[in-house]
Every structure is written in structure tokens, then in C-alpha cells.
Design a protein around this nucleic acid. Structure first.
Length: 613
DNA sequence: CATGTCACG
DNA sequence: ACGTACGTGACATGA
């Protein structure tokens, strides 16, 4: 709207100026600053020397104020005979007011990273747009946000010039070793494309008010919040993990010896191929389950069916799970600690999922083992600084509650309003017994059935999970829908609407396009998927809204008493000063439960401790 | 680099 | 007759 009008004026003004300018002195810097202020909109990109947000230096900054009107401002290029460049502090002092100005629009790619880097230089960016987020809300081109793919999708533009330079400099040098000639043509081309992508995508996004609202009210604020969470980082007990690694090493050696003794030959316990051969040739165990590639699977679920009378299988399983714990967690996490902050800084991916969930990489903090696992102790190494506590707040049964809300099934709603333990209630309903007569076995069945509903139920899947016949599983499913008829109506409705429209909408109106689904081989899949996607996507919306509500209070005055340190899909983890735990815990619970109002009500459970276990 | 496996919600 | 629960990321193996 405003910004496109502003831009079309600029485009006319600069129509015939194809310039890739290099900013090397204050006069030219002044010239560009004046142009940017006049223009009220510009795209920028920071070239840096690292992807680690805590210890990163800016090498140069590129700008675009209109298509083909771009400049590169080198700051720290350092090679033989490299020209003298402007002083970083001077430049950033001049740019700070522009970045912070709420009336000047900024366009960038990977906003979370850009604002983190600028934060290192004490700059808070306002009024900022991100082309990846724009594209993500608009058509949910999920997966890797590969720049070239984005260009190919959105623009009719010959990318070869960019690609050529980009390939040349990739992995060869640090950016500060790149000559100004190459760096400027690369950066200017890059920022030019970023601006063009924004113009193209924004043009379409603003026509879809529902999606534009999600972009502005959810995704942009969340990007800023994630930057803060990442920068806060997580404290871990390194010596504890190192000790555990050592212990596990010894156990692994012992398990390997035992396994080789049983088989009478040496083999690699972490090679599925060798295990298949050993089991087939030596132990005469016939496994039938296949992997995706059509080979015989040796997965845990498969092997554990034979486990009881086969010590070798027990050893293999234990070996594998301990190796996993060691290689992924106890060995790796200590190495991920940043030496400046002394903490681990994960990176949350905001555009990587089909459903609108976040994901976490480098390291992934969303798959740290839980209590019922061999690696139960790992969460004990996630600790708080002195005088602080770890506080975790998680939504109880959020996905099933969402199904209850979306279907408005009377019985399911009543289950949530009656009792905290839905699975027992479902069991009672399901088997037609009173609550006090439910056995733990019946509760287990009910729990699995509840999950099946969330995932997209099928007779085979349920029969496998419950280890019963397909016929019986089918009967259970019929029984479930008999007790909760509106759930069946609801799931048919989601499926139909998905087929009609080609996408699924979440509670907030985010669209999940079916054409992006990998397993999109037949409509049967969509039938099962649609409920799951809507539910998972809605849950993702809900926690995002809660994060925004919470961040509003965190930004005010409590700053140094409470920090958000992790998001794990339906859980937020905080580090809170011990004197304030009580106070903030209550606030957080209220905000999480009420930032989205549903029937049934959302319930948040709080855990407080010296560590994350 | 693809595949299999396994950690989480 | 077919395959067989949804969504992620990371590691070891082996072609």
C-alpha cells in the first residue's frame, strides 16, 4: 500500500540509473542516507563473517532503494591492497536512527538474523519486513528457504549472474577476503533481487488481508521474539555431560564385546545392514517389516517384539540408544556452548514446516530426551544461573483440546470440563464403565486411540500400535466415532474443505497448502493428514500468540528477572530469578491460557526446578 | 549424498 | 490390492 506507492514513485525517478555503487567515503554515505530518508523504504543485507549470532562482525552492508538502484558499503574487507573503508562505528552511528525510525520501511531476508547482528551493535530495528516470511505466509513454500528457489518461483529473472558469483565465492574465502569489485557486484545484485522479491510478494500478500494480518501480527513479532530467545541462550552443565559421555563410552565397549561374544564374530552394531545379516544368518530371526527403501527394517519397534527371548537384540537396542544419546547429546552439547556467553544458542527456523510450527537447529533443542528414555539425565544438565530457577510451562493436551474445540463434540467437551485426565475419561466413556473401574490397560488403549485421532486414524495403524487384529482395531475406531460422533463429522468436513480449496486453514487463518505435502500420493493420505495438519497448525498459532502476549510484559520492566530460553512446540521454558518465580509463573500461566480463548479452556501446567528435568 | 534410525512434540 | 500415524533434525553408515 503506502510502501508500494512510495516505491513506484522512486522507480520512475531512478528508471534509467542502473548503478552498483560502492560507498567508500562520507560524502557518498551522506548521499545514500539522504536518498533512503527521502524514499522511506529500502532493502538491506548484512554481510558478516559468521553465522553465530553472539560473535559476529559485519563485513559490509548492501542497500537497495529501488530496482537497480543499489549500493554496497564495505566496512571490513581486508586483503592485500584493499582500499581504505569507512569506520564501522561511524557508519553505524549514522545508520542507527534510520534502522530505528518507525516511519522508514526496511526489507530484508532472514530478519531474525539481521536483527540479531544489529543488536550486537546496539541497534534496534523497527518497521522491518522479511521476504522469506512473506513468502511463507502467502503460499507456505515450506522446506528450505533457498534463495535461488525463491527467485525461480517468484520472479521471471535471469539469476545466472548472481549464481555465478555466489558459486565462486561460496566456501572459498571469508567474505572479508573478497575483493570489493566482486563483493559489490555480488551484494548489489543480491539486494536488488531481495527488493524485487519483496515488491512481487508483497503485492500479492496485501490482497489477502487474512494472511497479511498473520504476517504482521504474528510472524514478524515472533521473529523478533525468537531473536531474543536465541540470544538469551541456555546454560548447561558441561562437566556433568562430559562425565556421562565417559560413562557411556565404557558401557558401549562392554555391550559391543558381549554382542560379538554371542555371535562369535565381529560386526558393527550401528550398521543396520550388518545387523540384518547377523540376525538372518546366525540367529535365524525372520523380520518382516520393511523400511521406506523396501529393505528389512531393524527398528526398535520391530526388534523389541523379539526382545524377551533374545539377549542379542536387547544388547543391540541398548547399544543403539546409548550411542544416540552420546553422539547427539552428551558429546555434542558441550561443544555448542558459545565461548563468549557461556551458553548454547540454538537457531529457530520459522519457515521450515508445513504446519506453522517452529523447528530448532544447531543444536536442535526441541528433541532433548525426556524422562522415560535412556537419556533421561540430559535434561538435568540444562540449568539456571545462580539465584535463578528453570520454569517450564506446557499446554496440557492441547491437540486433543483443539479437536474438541473444532468439532464441538459434546462428549469430548464434557470430558475436558469434567476431569484433568482425559485419557481416563475417554476410557470410561469408551468402555462404558465408571471412572473408578478403569484399569491401567484400558487407559492405555484410550490414550493410544486419542492419539490416533490426532494423527489420522487407520485400522492398520491402530492395530499395530495396540498389537491387536485389524478387525478389532476397526471395531475400536467405530466405537470411538460412536461415542464422539461430531469428531467424525468434523474430520469429514476438514477433508472435504481441503479437497475443495487445496489448502487447510488454522484457527488464525494460516493456510497450509496441500501441494506442498511430500506424501501427496493419493487422496487417502490427505484424508488422514487434514485433521492432523489443522490441529498441529492451530496449536502452533496458539503458542505463538502466547509468546507475543508474554513478550509484551517481559519487555516492560522485568527484563533481568525473567528470560524466555526455549520453545518446544507446546512448552515454553524460562529462567526466572528465584525471588520472582511465584509472581511471573502466575502471569505466564494466565497469559498462555487466555491469549486464545477456546471451549474447552486451555490448561497450562507449570514445573519449577533447578534444572529442566 | 541417500538411507536408516531415533530423539522430541 | 495397496501400504500403513502427523510433524521435525541429527547422526552413523555405506555407496
Amino acid at each position: 500500500m503506502v510502501e508500494t506507492n512510495l516505491l513506484s514513485n522512486t522507480i520512475t525517478r531512478y528508471k534509467f540509473m542502473k548503478t552498483y555503487n560502492l560507498v567508500l567515503n562520507e560524502t557518498i554515505l551522506d548521499f545514500w542516507i539522504t536518498r533512503i530518508k527521502e524514499n522511506n523504504i529500502f532493502a538491506f543485507h548484512l554481510e558478516t563473517d559468521s553465522l553465530h549470532i553472539i560473535s559476529v562482525n559485519i563485513i559490509g552492508i548492501s542497500f537497495a532503494i529501488a530496482p537497480c538502484v543499489t549500493a554496497y558499503l564495505p566496512l571490513a574487507h581486508d586483503y592485500k591492497n584493499s582500499p581504505k573503508q569507512l569506520d564501522t562505528n561511524l557508519v553505524l552511528t549514522r545508520l542507527k536512527p534510520i534502522f530505528e525510525d518507525v516511519t522508514i520501511y526496511k526489507i530484508c531476508k532472514n530478519l531474525k538474523y539481521q536483527i540479531s547482528v544489529l543488536k550486537n551493535y546496539n541497534i534496534e530495528v523497527n518497521r522491518i519486513f522479511d521476504i522469506n516470511l512473506e513468502s511463507y505466509v502467502l503460499n507456505n513454500l515450506s522446506g528450505k528457504y533457498d534463495f535461488i528457489k525463491l527467485v525461480n518461483f517468484w520472479l521471471d529473472y535471469d539469476i545466472s549472474y548472481y549464481k555465478n558469483i555466489s558459486d565462486k565465492i561460496k566456501n572459498k574465502y571469508y567474505f572479508n577476503k573478497i575483493s570489493l569489485e566482486i563483493a559489490s557486484s555480488y551484494s548489489c545484485e543480491h539486494i536488488n533481487i531481495i527488493l524485487m522479491l519483496h515488491l512481487k510478494i508483497w503485492n500479492q500478500l496485501q490482497k489477502k488481508s487474512e494472511l497479511k494480518r498473520i504476517f504482521e501480527k504474528i510472524d514478524i513479532p515472533i521473529a523478533k521474539i525468537l531473536s531474543r530467545i536465541e540470544r538469551n541462550g541456555v546454560l548447561i552443565n558441561r562437566t556433568y555431560l562430559n562425565k556421562q559421555s565417559e560413562k557411556i563410552s565404557n558401557i558401549l565397549i562392554d555391550l559391543e564385546l558381549q554382542a560379538h561374544k554371542i555371535t562369535g564374530c565381529s560386526f558393527n552394531l550401528s550398521s543396520p545392514k550388518q545387523i540384518r545379516e547377523i540376525l538372518f544368518n546366525i540367529k535365524n530371526i525372520e523380520l518382516t517389516r520393511k523400511t521406506l527403501g523396501g529393505k528389512i527394517s531393524t527398528r526398535n519397534e520391530v526388534l523389541s517384539k523379539f526382545e524377551s527371548n533374545q539377549p542379542l537384540l536387547k544388547i543391540i537396542l541398548k547399544y543403539r540408544s546409548l550411542l544416540k544419546i552420546k553422539s547427539t547429546y552428551t558429546d555434542k552439547l558441550p561443544h555448542m556452548v558459545n565461548h563468549i556467553s557461556g551458553r548454547i544458542h540454538t537457531s529457530y527456523q520459522q519457515c521450515s514446516t508445513l504446519t506453522g510450527r517452529l523447528s530448532s537447529i544447531l543444536p536442535n533443542l526441541q528433541n532433548i530426551p525426556v524422562d522415560n528414555n535412556q537419556g533421561f539425565f540430559i535434561r538435568k544438565s540444562f540449568i539456571a544461573t545462580k539465584f535463578n530457577k528453570i520454569v517450564s510451562a506446557d499446554y496440557s493436551q492441547i491437540e486433543l483440546r483443539i479437536i474438541a474445540y473444532l468439532s464441538q463434540d459434546k462428549n469430548l467437551l464434557e470430558s475436558f470440563n469434567k476431569h484433568e485426565d482425559v485419557h481416563s475419561i475417554t476410557a470410561a466413556e469408551f468402555f462404558g464403565l465408571s471412572m473408578n473401574k478403569i484399569t491401567s490397560q484400558q487407559r492405555r488403549i484410550a490414550k493410544i486411540i486419542n492419539f490416533s485421532v490426532i494423527y489420522g486414524i487407520s485400522p492398520f495403524g491402530l492395530s499395530y500400535q495396540l498389537n491387536i487384529s485389524i478387525r478389532k482395531a476397526k471395531k475400536y475406531i467405530d466405537m470411538f466415532y460412536d461415542r464422539y460422533p461430531s469428531v467424525l463429522i468434523y474430520s469429514k468436513h476438514v477433508y472435504q474443505s481441503a479437497i475443495d480449496k487445496g489448502y487447510i486453514t488454522t484457527l488464525e487463518g494460516r493456510r497450509l497448502y496441500l501441494c506442498n505435502i511430500k506424501s501427496n500420493k493419493c487422496f487417502k493420505n490427505i484424508k488422514r493428514l487434514s485433521v492432523n495438519l489443522q490441529v498441529q497448525g492451530t496449536a502452533a498459532d496458539i503458542i505463538k500468540k502466547a509468546m507475543i502476549a508474554i513478550e509484551d510484559i517481559l519487555e516492560q520492566k522485568y527484563n533481568n528477572k525473567i528470560k524466555t530460553i526455549m520453545q518446544v512446540h507446546d512448552e515454553l521454558v524460562f529462567e526466572i530469578h528465584e525471588d520472582y518465580v511465584e509472581h511471573y509463573t502466575q502471569k505466564i500461566k494466565l497469559l498462555m491460557e487466555n491469549s486464545t480463548k477456546l471451549n474447552p479452556k486451555l490448561l497450562v501446567k507449570i514445573n519449577i526446578g533447578t534444572h529442566w528435568n
